[in-house]
Nucleic acid binder design. Sequence first.
DNA 1: CCATATGTAATTTTAATATTTACATGACAT
DNA 2: ATGTCATGTAAATATTAAAATTACATATGG
Lengths: 147, 147
Amino acid sequence: MRVSQKCSIAVHCLIFINEYGQTTNVNSSLLAKSTGCNPVIIRNIISALSKKGLVSVRQGVGNIRLAKEPEAISVADIYSAICPGGCDNFIGIHSSPSPLCPVGRNIHSVLEEQYRKLEEDMKKSMAKISLDEIIASYHQAVGKEKS
Amino acid sequence: MRVSQKCSIAVHCLIFINEYGQTTNVNSSLLAKSTGCNPVIIRNIISALSKKGLVSVRQGVGNIRLAKEPEAISVADIYSAICPGGCDNFIGIHSSPSPLCPVGRNIHSVLEEQYRKLEEDMKKSMAKISLDEIIASYHQAVGKEKS
DNA sequence: CCATATGTAATTTTAATATTTACATGACAT
DNA sequence: ATGTCATGTAAATATTAAAATTACATATGG
């Protein structure tokens, strides 16, 4: 598969925004510090999320906010925002099968047909997980941390 | 994600073995030619499949055969043979979130909990696809090729 | 019109994969 | 028994995809 850690960074950012967006001017450099990754990566991710209407952000200002209620944002939304076109070939396919072999000539289309099904199922699974639920799990983790 | 193209190569090999295993001494160098990848990779893959009882192979001889009927082999079997322990973190997680931030401290466990669900669902999807079905799709592709 | 922050392109770095090399081990034919 | 062929595996190298960095244009608001 090929889902990069961008999905994870995106979820991290969304939790952060939900927790602190009301009280703080959340910007890419703050998110970069929290996630431990580069501000440019953050900007790309936030920009992608913004284009899909999941967050709002203003150039020159920052002030990143959730643009939807957490229960209306699913992991599938995040995934498709980050990997437009659905992270094609999320399972890698070997690039140079032999054109002289019948299997080699057809393997690509055969695998793609099967993998398409897997990816569709995966999206359904992702659609079942809401940001709301993730935030609840986060709060639980924070609770345990204190005790 | 982290599923390398090894899964695809494995499927390619299994189709090939099914098609030619009866009539030919299939060995790693033949499979390497058909898949266009290195014999060592093939040997590693075949060895992994063999350890899970999906194929039989004899050192010094080759003669790789399916050890089960195609309808008894699922993509999940292949996947778990190739990625023992289930390709941990099939969605990548950023490695250095800030320990100074509550989100940073907890993101790892929160994501893992969610991703575990996704991976379980994925395995179920993979279990629904049998080699038999893939071979049928392959035969169809070969048929179209001729016309 | 200056300070600040995003948007984005281009380059460099890094880390994950695959390839290659090398050699030990097992099978079987002669 | 021994020579040949193929697998099993480890270790080094090369390749490639992903992320980080650099650089600069663009938008906002004081």
